[in-house]
Design a protein around this nucleic acid. Sequence first.
DNA 1: AAGCCAACGTTGGCGGAGCCAACATACCAT
DNA 2: ATGGTATGTTGGCTCCGCCAACGTTGGCTT
Lengths: 164, 164
Amino acid sequence: MGAANEIAYSPHMEQPSAPTPNRLRTTPSWLLTQTAAHATRLVTTALATRHARGYHYRLLATLAETGPASQADLGRHSGIDRSDIVATLNDLADRHLVRRQADPTDRRRNIVHITPAGQRELTHLQHALDTAQDTLLAPLNPTDRHELVRLLDLLLTHHSEPEG
Amino acid sequence: MGAANEIAYSPHMEQPSAPTPNRLRTTPSWLLTQTAAHATRLVTTALATRHARGYHYRLLATLAETGPASQADLGRHSGIDRSDIVATLNDLADRHLVRRQADPTDRRRNIVHITPAGQRELTHLQHALDTAQDTLLAPLNPTDRHELVRLLDLLLTHHSEPEG
DNA sequence: AAGCCAACGTTGGCGGAGCCAACATACCAT
DNA sequence: ATGGTATGTTGGCTCCGCCAACGTTGGCTT
């Protein structure tokens, strides 16, 4: 039928997606969760190239910025639950990207350090992540990008502060 | 130590949250997923007042807008996987909010209808959802709200279209 | 008419993210 | 000394988004 570079049309080939109902398309929370889902997909595949998940990056990034910290503090800074911190740190420690060390002044606490290897890994993850950000924001010009960040920051700040 | 209307300070009372690392705070995908998480919390609790989840609303809304449709079409319009459609429709059908009917012209298909009770329930859910939207967008003025919707719509459209 | 491929509904499963409850241990103020 | 509370840890849960497989049915091709 057609030349090789034409797109073959098969009567059995249906549209992979269909128009989204207006009720959803105009609901801010829906727009938010759907774009977030796309962002998560991009980030997940980006981090997966280095066998990491979101929690791994978040913890390494938090550690690099705050310095050695207890697991509870890590949780508060990164917004990850204490129990999830444990599992994620286990992963990171198994790969020697992080070190748990007993706090001599408080025997309940572990002081968690990022290792040099962890620092290097974070650099790789950061690079992969930066690329994903560009892909995500591709359709937006610089002005729109800043505007989006501003608006999201407003929402996040408002809903995070206890005194709302 | 102070009067009753002062906020009691206890040395054991730590901040429930702590400053988020800049690396995260300035990452668009992080802002997106975190605000989406807040939105999901609001929507989830709003829908929970009527014992519904996101998928239930999405299907009812889609049905109301497109009219009777096959499960596959419902999936394409709502962005929900075929297998999840089955489970969600089971819930809705159990509560008589939806009716499955064999398609006489294609015995593979079910034609799904929304019942009058389903229409009424959708109205309730919509109301709960609208309130949640207001709570979510509280810190934004009308201009910013439209701007946010515009930007998210841009992202969503870009990443949904097959020809990216 | 036969054969083949595709779509349909359904079952069962998976992983990530965000939670919560409970517990033993350790700290600290009273 | 006692009681309240923070810490790390285990185990469990829900929601959302996916994927693989299977039996059935439809429809195009030859």
